[in-house]
């Protein structure tokens, strides 16, 4: 992979990780987690694992939806 693209993906991962740790609101944390997941995909595709990329792209949002179920219960009660 090219150096600049690798550096950009690494910056995305680090920004997502730091802001997911630092933020206090659950919704802000989930948005930051989404940046972290976006940064992982160029690494997967660069290795040629397209099937893993397809499966992970369809599976990873389900985890966010499950966490949002807990957020909604907390907000209503």
């Amino acid at each position: 992979m090219d150096e600049i693209i690798m550096a950009a993906s690494a910056i995305l991962i680090l920004i997502g990780m730091i802001s997911a740790i630092v933020n206090l609101d659950p919704f802000d944390k989930l948005i930051s987690l989404s940046i972290l997941i976006s940064g992982i995909f160029p690494f997967i595709v660069d290795r040629g694992l397209l099937d893993v990329a397809i499966a992970l792209a369809l599976i990873a949002p389900l985890s966010t939806v499950f966490i949002l179920m807990a957020c909604q219960k907390r907000a209503s009660s």
Partner: peptide, 29 residues
């Protein structure tokens, strides 16, 4: 518990990146 659960996702993706360097598609799935 909610913050702890959201933070638990971060090391999961870190471990996924770690396993990516060994080129095992089935393990990642």
């Amino acid at each position: 518990y909610l913050t702890r659960l959201i933070n638990l996702e971060i090391p999961a993706f870190g471990l996924l990146l770690l396993m990516l360097s060994y080129n095992e598609a089935l393990a990642l799935l």
